[in-house]
């Protein structure tokens, strides 16, 4: 996916630049962007050191696990097809908590494990996604991240007066997208059930 997207960006840029007489600026822009990426990476390294370090304390102190337990009743509502003590619950909770606290890359392994468990519970044919799988994916894609650490870091790098000022609005926007995702999933699960008896 990225292959084509990236190649497309560069080819279009060069061809369009040639037609509009901006070709001389293309090389400059390429080199300048590359050095901007390095500067940005230094800022990001700082922000990530700070946030991941703090979250490691939370994890080792048992805070994240406690948050996962709090999530259980919500998961029971969202995934009624998963038995109460099934390990799928644990994997889904770990995935959601990582996402909520802005540890997106740590969320993927737990998410894939959750999919593996959901596949063993799948009552559709093995090639068709179950209701739980669809709900889980929609939930993930609706963005659960409550604290967008990366965006705050980018904003501070690019000269924002108050980089964290978006936090409150970001929580509202994320809740709206997640709420819409949950509503949609619930409607699909209910109508599907009626149709198939």
């Amino acid at each position: 996916m990225l292959n084509y997207l990236w190649a497309f960006m560069i080819i279009i840029g060069i061809v369009y630049g040639a037609f509009t007489g901006n070709l001389n600026r293309v090389t400059d822009a390429a080199l300048e962007s590359a050095s901007q990426a390095v500067t940005l990476c230094i800022t990001m390294a700082g922000a990530m050191a700070f946030w991941v370090g703090m979250m490691r304390i939370a994890e080792n102190a048992g805070l994240l696990q406690a948050a996962q337990r709090r999530l259980r009743p919500i998961l029971a509502f969202l995934f009624p097809d998963i038995p109460k003590d099934h390990p799928a619950n644990q994997a889904i909770a770990a995935n959601c908590i990582s996402n909520i606290f802005g540890l997106g890359w740590a969320a993927t392994p737990a998410g894939l494990e959750a999919m593996k468990y959901l596949q063993t519970l799948n009552r559709q044919t093995p090639e068709r996604a179950s209701n739980s799988m669809c709900t889980f994916l929609v939930l993930n894609i609706s963005s659960l991240q409550l604290i967008p650490v990366n965006i705050i870091a980018y904003r501070s790098q690019y000269g924002s007066v108050d980089p964290a000022s978006i936090l409150g609005m970001a929580v509202v926007a994320t809740s709206v997208s997640t709420g819409a995702g949950i509503l949609f999933s619930k409607i699909m699960c209910l109508t599907g059930r009626r149709k198939h008896g």
């Binding site: 593996k116 596949q119 068709r128 994916l137 929609v138 993930n140 894609i141 963005s143």
Partner: peptide, 26 residues
Amino acid sequence: SIYFMSVKIKKTRWTLAGALTASLAG
């Protein structure tokens, strides 16, 4: 693609519609 490919699901049913709904709302 990452999540569904990992368990060889080909028919994703209403996942895309739900994902688009959530994104549009966001």
